[in-house]
Amino acid sequence: MFRVNGTLPTIVIVAGLALAGYALLMTALNRRMGIGLLAALGALEILLLVLVGVIVARLAGGERPAGIATLIGYLIAMPLVPVVAGFWGLLERSRWGPAVIAVAGLVAAVLMVRLHQVWPVIHA
């Protein structure tokens, strides 16, 4: 049911979960937002942009999933997750800033699984 094929979706899921783990560690250690977390967040953002690029290329090639409206929603929402979480987390100068980033990492992983259910064509 939750099987995910393809290298890129797997990398996105692993990256999201790794970011969540790293961020939760920072929360547990009572650390604020730092450059390390921002770099990890940036790496996830780059992966998501690559993913969006691959899917848009397939759409441009004429392929269409059944739920095109949902897919486009995901394509818009997914790259926004790390950006919005980054700003919202930076506003918080306590351990709860990294906790926001942890949520973003988990959300990215979940959205990746759901996106793959909407259109399981991404094998790149």
Binding site: G67, W88, L91, E92, S94, W96, V103, V107
Partner: peptide, 24 residues
């Protein structure tokens, strides 16, 4: 602020996803 920062983030996520999904 504080833990509320996380709470607002999760609420915003559900606000967006529930509204968008229902609209579609």
């Amino acid at each position: 602020t504080g833990p509320g920062r996380v709470l607002v983030a999760i609420y915003a996520l559900f606000a967006l996803s529930a509204t968008a999904r229902a609209s579609v």
